[in-house]
Simulated assay, not measured.
Amino acid sequence: MSSPDISTNPLSELLAKKGVLLADGATGTNLFAMGLESGEAPELWNEDAPEKIVKLHQDFVDAGSDIILTNSFGGTRHRLKLHHAQDRAFALNKRAAEIARQVADNAGRPVIVAGSVGPTGELLVPLGALTYEDAVDAFVEQIEGLKAGGADVAWIETMSAPDEIRAAAEAAAKCGMPYTYTGSFDTAGKTMMGLHPKDIHNVTNEMEQAPLAVGANCGVGASDILASLLDMKEANPDGTIIVKGNCGIPEFRGSEIHYSGTPPLMAEYVRLAMDAGATIIGGCCGTSCDHLRAMREAIDTHQKTEKPSLDDIREKIGPLRNKTAGDGTEAPKRERRGRRRA
């Protein structure tokens, strides 16, 4: 299996060909529907129930996704240690990429395998005990596994701390992998560690290898991620920007989380994202294949128009759940999220 070529990588080539790419939907939401138990590590299914991971990827491809993310979000040794699987990090990530690679190669059209790299769950020094060097080392272990399994790109996602983004990006560079990264702007319009959407482009400025794309994922809702997109695009009009927003607003019904987004709403989110300048658009928590099919049709049929305003977003998608990053008002309290994107 050939190693990805950073200078002529498949992601950039497909983006140049198609203009706008559809990423996939929710990993956790869909695996829970297949029987994953709360607190169970999805990464263990790469070895214990690979047929379910094949089905997840195949369903996304059948719904029209151009990019599928490997089942490896919690694939660092730090996350896997919670399940006594820290010594299996390389193998589990390799298997995750192999499964996605198999589905992509059988798709009959170009499909990008993005190696999902989520946060370690640890705080870096001085706020916590994890050193920058140890974080890089853990991400190298994970990304080497993803590369060995055939991933096209390291897809660093749901990040909050700039230092952790840099550590993962440095690991990707050490592994000879192209990379993207996204932050989760879920706290008063910024990440939990205070990163502003307009500053997302600058996190890896001092690194020799630049990202292929940057952006936002997860967060609190479709309206909010579109507001973040406006800030990101204004800060760098020429940047290649990813948005992978949650399917509407999360709502607790008893002990379960449900998402308010319908397929028509997610199609409207896609149209607004295209108008605002995003070129890689997908869904995060709550996004099913029904949503993705509507999103695929929106990408294929929408003619880009003028950039939307916040009022346009509120009118078509609904109110912002958070304040925007530049707003001085108090933000509503958000629910405490679990260990991973759902």
Rank of each mutant, 00 (worst) to 15 (best):
T187Y: 12
H78T: 03
L230Q: 03
K81G: 05
E144Q: 15
R336L: 13
L69W: 03
T27D: 03
D137N: 10
A114F: 04
R340Q: 11
V125F: 09
N202G: 11
L80A: 05
A210H: 14
T204W: 05
G75Q: 03
I112S: 05
W155A: 13
E251P: 04
K52Y: 07
H196M: 10
K304F: 10
M192R: 13
V243C: 08
P237M: 11
K174R: 15
S116K: 03
A33H: 09
Q102V: 06
D312Y: 09
I67S: 02
M274A: 05
A85N: 02
H196F: 10
V153Y: 03
P42W: 09
R337W: 11
E208S: 14
P10Y: 02
L31F: 07
A138V: 05
G283A: 10
A168I: 00
F32M: 12
H83L: 11
H201S: 13
A114L: 09
M207T: 01
S184E: 04
E164A: 02
G19E: 08
A100G: 14
L272A: 09
G35M: 06
Q142W: 04
E51A: 13
V125Q: 13
Q86D: 15
V136Q: 01
K94D: 03
K18E: 13
L36R: 00
K52W: 09
E234V: 12
A89W: 00
V220G: 00
N93C: 11
L82W: 08
P263S: 04
N30I: 02
C289Q: 12
S288F: 06
A100S: 15
A138W: 01
R337Y: 11
T131A: 08
H84G: 08
A107K: 05
P4V: 12
K55E: 15
F32E: 13
D137P: 00
P10F: 05
T240G: 01
M207N: 09
L31P: 00
A138I: 01
L14F: 09
M295C: 08
K244I: 12
P197D: 03
E234G: 08
A63I: 07
A168P: 01
A169G: 09
T131I: 06
E335I: 15
G115F: 06
L272P: 00
I299M: 10
K333M: 14
V117P: 01
T120M: 04
N322E: 15
D275I: 05
A26D: 00
A151C: 11
T180H: 05
G118F: 01
I53K: 04
N322W: 03
A342V: 12
I99M: 04
L56C: 06
I68W: 06
W45Y: 07
P263E: 03
L229N: 02
D59E: 14
L292I: 10
V113S: 08
A107C: 06
A26E: 00
I299N: 07
R253A: 12
S116I: 03
Q102E: 14
P110T: 15
I67D: 02
I200T: 15
E315R: 14
D238V: 07
